[in-house]
Design a binder for these strands. Structure first.
Lengths: 118, 118
DNA sequence: GCGATATTTAACCAATCGGTTAATTAACGA
DNA sequence: TCGTTAATTAACCGATTGGTTAAATATCGC
């Protein structure tokens, strides 16, 4: 997978890991505290945290036998920035009706093979 | 994986698929056109597209033997909205120095076990 | 109907994923 | 030093992933 953005999105592609991030947005928490809300075992949580750490979304400190975890937002910001150019499309109603209208008014369309989308 | 958000992030966790989306942001394209820039085989592209379709990020039309693909932004928007609450943290320099300052001024800290983060 | 073009499906493979249980490491506190 | 608590590591399992080659499907143009 290698690249940071892929690692970030991959880390986000799991509801448990997203929940952990949501929890950390409210402040630091130890591994045990993070694990509490879930049904899965501690080793499983430990590995989810390792994935989040690997993606640079979380950092771990140490305090006696505890490992307080903290949200690291930089990589989230990078993911957010990757999304930014697509925001332009969020409200583009580029759909059936509009496309059809366009193809009816324009005679020889610049169309990618005369689309009949849907 | 089941939930839409996980499917979306998972689909985005691959550079080939992100490149496909970037290409589609410039307009519709057939499977062959989308495959052209890549070294991998057509079946591989076909499956990447199926992942993107499955995540609702791309829709396919049909026109003779071509399958013109189009970007569908709704799910991207949902992912973007998931990120929104975290934007608050993007510039929070919540780091060593600031945390340490805080723990020095506050006597009995509300600290999660007296963090020594890093 | 036939050959060419566009795309998908099938079968396979090695690697990774998300979970488990059991064992290990590390630091506390008495 | 011993028992307890916090967390990680190891070994294993079944499912999924991302790629391949080869075969199948669909539609065109003649």
């Amino acid at each position: 997978m290698v690249d940071a953005l892929s690692a970030t999105f991959s880390a986000l592609a799991d509801p448990t890991r997203r929940a952990i991030l949501a929890r950390l947005a409210e402040g630091e928490a130890t591994v045990g505290e993070l694990a509490a809300p879930f049904d899965i075992t501690l080793p499983a949580i430990s590995r989810h945290l390792k994935v989040l750490e690997g993606a640079g979304l979380v950092s771990k400190g140490r305090s006696a036998q505890w490992r307080p975890c903290r949200l690291e937002a930089a990589r989230l910001k990078a993911a957010d920035e990757w999304m930014a150019p697509y925001r332009e499309f969020f409200d583009t109603r580029f759909d059936r009706l509009e496309a059809q209208l366009e193809s009816m008014t324009t005679k020889t369309t610049t169309d990618t093979k005369g689309t009949t989308h849907d």
